[in-house]
Design a binder for these strands. Structure first.
Lengths: 114, 114
DNA sequence: CCGTATCCTAACCGATACTG
DNA sequence: CAGTATCGGTTAGGATACGG
């Protein structure tokens, strides 16, 4: 009874994957799930990311409702990023992906074509 | 106590994401989680995929240990694809992504910037 | 400090044609 | 039937420079 509807069903996974797809999103999600960070703090946590990419990924996640952006009207500028409730739930899901990843790496150590 | 190790931990999620990343992999995973399919059956299930992409994604998934490929020495050729145990477990995980995706679409209907 | 804008490369993916 | 090979378009992402 699920053979025909499966395609639609599976496609909703791509909605979720779209929220995470992006080279730095999983990492950002991971950090922000711990605490609120300022823009340049995130930069320091991820030395390899460029300002452009950090801005883009944060903006995308904000648009997707995962991240909350708070601007303080001070000089020098201060902007804080935190996860929304949805973002936190997605971060939880990401943890499950981590668990699978760890298990996968373990269970495929004795693979024949590794 | 987990703030410094978090980065390594989160990065293992990218291992899992790497297994799913690919335009058609979630769909293929979904179909093969139901039953074994032949190459051209998968083609029919996904009318928009090209032979090249189907071959590539299947080969990648086979290399990753998600898919089992069985060749029958007959004419015309017959090749059957099925999920390995790891592949099945990943398909389960994909179902959770689906659930989140559905819930996400529902919970963001009343969003302010939709 | 927090971004934007521009340029450039590399990867992904589709269309098409060909092969065992 | 089940692939492989080649070409070409589109997009993600990095480097760098500039602006509020």
């Amino acid at each position: 009874m699920h053979s025909k509807r499966k395609r639609d069903f599976i496609c909703t996974s791509e909605v979720t994957l779209g929220l995470i797809s992006g080279k730095w999103k999983p990492l950002i999600l991971g950090y922000l799930s711990e605490q609120t960070y300022r823009f340049n703090e995130l930069e320091k946590l991820m030395p390899d990311i460029t300002q452009k990419m950090l801005t883009m990924q944060l903006k995308a996640m904000e648009t997707d409702g995962l991240v909350k952006r708070e601007v303080y009207a001070v000089v020098p500028p201060k902007v804080e990023y935190s996860l929304t409730d949805v973002g936190q739930r997605l971060a939880q899901l990401l943890n499950q992906l981590c668990e699978f990843g760890e298990d996968y790496m373990t269970s495929t150590l004795g693979s024949s074509d590794a």
